[in-house]
Structure formats: C-alpha cells, structure tokens
Amino acid sequence: MSLKALSFLAVLITGALLIYGTLDMPPWGDPNAPAALHVSPRYIEKTVEETATPNAVTSVVADYRGYDTMGETTVIFTAGIACIFLLRRDEDDY
C-alpha cells in the first residue's frame, strides 16, 4: 500500500472516531446540558453583583476566565514577534 493511501486511511479512521465521539455529546443549545444547568446560570445571575459589569461576556472573558485570556494575548504577542523576526528586512540588509 502506498504512503498516500495509508495516510488517507489514518485520516479516515481518526475522523470517524471523532464523529463517533460527538454522538455522546448533548445536542447544541440543549437547556438540560450539564454546562447549561449550573455554570451559565451562575455567571448570568451573579455577574452584576460580583463584578459590576452588565456585559456577562466581558466579565467571563476578562475576570472568571482571565487566565485563559492572558494565554490568548500571549498567542497574539508570540505571533507578532515571530512575524517581526521572520519577515522584517532592514534597508541595509542583504
């Protein structure tokens, strides 16, 4: 079997396994999904009381999940620095 067919087979099996895995997940927007039962109501009910921020998206992104957003900012930082190092050319470079 050629390498191409082998890699196609690997992709096919991995994809089938991933699709099989999603069958166990709750349907999209299901109000009885575990995440919708206590996590979301907790944020929606307490966000003004705890953070004085009416926009729950902002309070989740920057406060409750602030560590995650710091990682995102670091990703942007790394991408920018990598672009500067790889692409930037000085006038006198040769």
Partner: peptide
C-alpha cells in the same frame, strides 16, 4: 495595546524591503 501594536508590526514587517529585494 498588544493587538494594536501587533497589527501595525505585521503590516510593517510585510512591507519592509531590503536593498537586495
């Protein structure tokens, strides 16, 4: 601040040219 600076930095890096190029 980071996002603004990265946007400008990437554009600046893309548009920079050396004498050889």
């Amino acid at each position: 601040i980071t996002v603004m600076a990265v946007m400008v930095a990437i554009m600046l890096a893309l548009s920079s040219k050396s004498k050889r190029t």
